[in-house]
Design a binder for these strands. Structure first.
Length: 488
RNA sequence: CGGGAUGUAGCUCAGCUCGGUAGAGUGCACGUCUGGGGGGCGUGAAGUCGCAGGUUCAAAUCCUGUCAUCCCGACCA
């Protein structure tokens, strides 16, 4: 069975699709633009979800659930918000089907038209703020720190598994505060939390920055983003946290009485990451042999493959090793399936991205050692049997660090700076990656650069140093460089 | 919604020009020899040829219509 995948150099896009398919992460579905997340893909999402959920709770947030359907009229209450999402909403217009009187099959019952049409949430700000209005009366009700894990739907033209699907899973946090300062602090806190998660757990380096007006969330005052670089040099927005000001509070009349018994509008934030992170994980670390997963997010960290012989001693030994590893909190699978040969299994678990593989055969038993292979570098070493648990424990930590350092180096190697448009376009065409350049701060310039080069401003880095320069496009004065790139 | 292509076994595809009993590889099932990097041999199950009409003694093949999917553009986490 030749389960080969297209190489990255040949066709990066096809390589990605091959990984998703052959590592068993997702399938296409009967519905255009939607995907079926298969058990292994979902297991990765569960690792992501569980860790983030823990981090949200550690910072004082609680979970709740709001409905899938939103009255159409809610969307239009915030002017920019409706502009941003109206074009991609699925709309529920009827509530009943009937048998087609003219033939077989069912049709929509024309008598079952809804009085007010409902939309399937593309995001939940509107229904949530409509609800918060009833929950908030006093400054004593604040802050309100709520998150929900949910699915949302945006009717996309072109989709790719995990990176962009019409329906996707995500978390969306929606918080209400009594002061502007506190709301900004909340949006920054989550921004930091996302960056920490990306780097510590996904081993994916990110640039923290704010979005330009043009790239900002519809209805936000400020959008903070974490931007990552994929292996083809394109940028991926991996998570966003928005300071919403009082926009939604005003649209939905969410007011509270402050300590001085005066009525004020509340200050708001919202923030989210989605199943897109699974796509980010794939495109950050994986190689031409398949998926590569950081140990902290691998559904199972170690696979033990017994090299079969007609006795049960190998299985006994494999189980002993498994117990020793599990005692250190390491997740382990023994593949004793007789259907496939060892060589097949080696390739298979590389495809699945298991960080560590242990080969155990008669030869090893005699020598009192095992063969340990790491997925990230493909190195194999023989390890003494009685040191196996601590060796693997250290190795997993080392792999986690190595993946992060490698990705960081890649980003550094593919980040350039440009001082005029000729240089800008040359870098973009020949090398790609991130381009640091001065920008005059106007939407007009941003759009012209986008039109001319297809590169957009990914973010204005928070740690950008103040340095006077000239806008790469207009030549006007600029005080800091921003990050340009082609983006997913 | 514009431009291009494709629908035949679970998957990848051949067959169509020139009409005549539905094919291959892979996967699947069973048996067997194997087993330290994607095994060998044998046997077997599996397809309303996207759908609907038409031409014909006869249609996967020719004609008309229709549906769906994929790729390229406009939109986007």
């Amino acid at each position: 069975m030749a389960k080969e995948i297209t190489s990255r150099s040949e066709d990066y896009s096809q390589w990605y699709l091959d990984i998703v398919k052959k590592a068993g992460l997702a399938d296409n579905s009967a519905v255009r633009g939607c995907m079926v997340i298969k058990p292994y893909g979902f297991a990765i999402w569960e690792k992501i979800r569980d860790q983030l959920d823990l981090m949200f709770k550690q910072t004082g947030h609680v979970n709740a659930y709001f409905p899938l359907l939103i009255p159409k009229s809610f969307l239009s209450k915030e002017a920019e918000h409706v502009d941003g999402f109206a074009k991609e909403c699925a709309v529920v217009t009827h509530h009943r089907l009937m048998n087609d009187p003219n033939g077989t099959g069912v049709i929509v019952d024309p008598d079952a038209k809804l009085e007010e049409e409902l939309i399937i949430r593309p995001t939940s700000e509107t229904i949530i703020w409509n609800t918060y209005k009833d929950w908030i009366q006093s400054y004593r009700d604040l802050p309100l720190l709520i998150n929900q894990w949910a699915n949302v739907m945006r009717w996309e033209m072109r989709t790719r598994p995990f990176l962009r699907t019409s329906e996707f899973l995500w978390q969306e946090g929606h918080t209400a505060h009594s002061t502007k300062k506190e709301a900004i602090a909340e949006s920054r806190l989550i921004h930091d939390l996302y960056a920490e998660f990306a780097e510590e757990f996904m081993a994916m380096p990110v640039i923290k920055g704010s979005k330009s007006a043009n790239e900002r969330f519809a209805g936000a005052v400020d959008t903070y983003t974490i931007e990552a670089m994929m292996q083809d040099g394109k940028a991926l927005q991996a998570g966003t946290s928005h300071f919403l000001g009082q926009n939604f509070a005003k649209a939905f009349e969410v007011k509270f009485l402050n300590e001085g018994n005066k009525e004020e509008f509340v200050w708001a934030t919202s923030w989210g990451v989605s199943t897109r992170l699974v796509g980010a994980l794939i495109m950050t670390h994986s190689d031409d042999d398949g998926l590569v997963l950081p140990p902290k997010l691998a559904p199972i960290q170690v696979v033990i493959i017994p090299i079969p012989k007609p006795n049960g001693v190998l299985m006994e030994e494999a189980n002993l090793i498994k117990k020793e590893l599990e005692a250190k909190g390491i997740s382990v699978k023994i593949d004793s399936d007789k259907k496939n040969r060892p060589g097949f299994k080696f390739a298979e678990y590389e495809m699945l991205g298991f960080p560590v593989r242990i080969g155990l055969g008669a030869r090893d038993l005699e020598r009192n050692e095992v063969e340990v292979a790491r997925r990230d570098t493909k190195e194999k070493v023989n390890v003494s049997r009685n040191e196996i648990a601590s060796y693997v424990e250290n190795l997993l930590a080392e792999i986690q660090v190595n993946l992060f350092e490698k990705a960081k180096q890649f980003r550094a190697d593919n980040t350039s700076s440009a001082s005029d448009m000729e240089e800008f376009e040359r870098i973009l065409n020949e090398k790609g990656g991130f381009i640091e350049a001065h920008w005059d701060g106007t939407t007009e310039t941003e759009l012209k650069i986008k039109e001319q080069t297809k590169a957009t401003i990914r973010c204005i880095p928070l740690d950008a140093k103040e340095e006077e320069g000239k806008c790469v496009f207009s030549g006007k004065k600029s005080m800091r460089k921003v990050i340009f790139a082609k983006a997913y």
